[in-house]
């Protein structure tokens, strides 16, 4: 049954998401030309250069708009499908409530992940057309941005600690994915609390709850950061760079596990709340 639910979730969300994705793709393709123009600025009149910069700014803003649209699509689908009149249909389908929840998590996460991937790919595409040295015939033409990033990463690698560094890189990547999942689940939690607790203005309540909870969490993390970082700096300056990377594995592992724990807590809460506390009156 989850396949059928996913089919309808994706179908509904893709209507708007595809339009936004295609719009940014078209803008990015034009942006490639603009990136080429601004990096070869000696060749073109000033007006063209200014227009290209303006267009590149628009492309940047379109990425921001695309991210916002994706977020709205995901959370609007969750709220409308579960907590408005549509919930009457969703919760009378012969499906376990946890299956409905899983479908919303998988589809929501996929959309958010796909949005990040599309934006990343489009930025790489634009960077590919940036020409160093200002001349199209320059030998360093193409994939400059990606090459710079790769060189920066390589500079961090210490001989003999390649494995530890790779693990760190993998942990950072996994943590960023887990953090996206946590963010999704946490906002789902806020929407669910808003819908269960508030009698009116449920969305406003959910937003207020999200703001208060994330501000409190941010403050707590800030305090923890100011306490832990000086201690870590003091300790790591006394050890070698390689050992520092090895310590990093431990720290990143702890962060990754903490985020996973947060995901598990949110999931358990959502499961319990939707199964036992939700009353569509």
């Amino acid at each position: 049954m989850i396949r059928k639910l996913l089919k309808y979730d994706f179908k509904e969300m893709m209507r708007f998401w595809l339009i936004a994705a295609i719009t940014t793709a078209v803008l990015s393709v034009i942006g490639c030309g603009c990136a080429n123009v601004v990096s070869c600025y000696q060749k073109y009149p000033e007006a063209i250069i200014i227009l290209s910069w303006i267009f590149l700014a628009i492309v940047g803003l379109s990425y921001l708009a695309f991210s916002i649209v994706a977020i709205i699509i995901v959370f609007a689908r969750f709220y409308k499908n579960l907590f408005t009149d549509e919930g009457y249909l969703t919760f009378t389908l012969p499906i376990k409530k946890i299956t409905v929840l899983n479908s919303k998590i998988i589809s929501g996460f996929s959309i958010l992940f796909a949005t990040s991937a599309v934006i990343f790919a489009e930025i790489c595409l634009i960077l590919h057309f940036v020409i160093i040295g200002g001349s199209p015939s320059d030998s360093s033409t193409g994939a400059i941005g990606i090459r710079i990033i790769w060189e920066l990463i390589n500079a961090l690698v210490v001989d003999g600690y390649e494995l530890a560094f790779s693990i760190n890189a993998l942990l950072v990547f996994l943590t960023s994915i887990a953090a996206t999942l946590f963010k999704l689940l946490f906002i789902y939690v806020c929407i669910t609390i808003g819908s269960i607790v508030a009698k009116k203005a449920k969305v406003a309540f959910a937003i207020a709850f999200y703001y208060i909870a994330s501000s409190s969490f941010g403050t707590l993390m800030g305090i923890l950061y100011t306490m832990v970082v000086p201690f870590l700096v003091e300790r790591t300056t006394q050890i070698s760079k390689g050992a520092g990377i090895a310590v990093g594995v431990l720290i990143f592992s702890a962060v990754f596990l903490t985020v996973l724990l947060g995901c598990a807590f949110c999931y358990a809460f959502l499961n319990k709340a939707i199964d036992r506390k939700l009353n569509l009156a």
Partner: peptide
């Protein structure tokens, strides 16, 4: 829920759906 067919007081369909999609939705579930 597989045995019960429920007609609520309010329309519970997504307004963006077409009637054909609605029939397909019910057939699916």
């Amino acid at each position: 829920k597989a045995l019960v067919s429920y007609l609520p007081e309010r329309c519970y369909f997504s307004p963006s759906m077409k009637l054909r999609e609605l029939v397909a939705f019910f057939s699916d579930f």
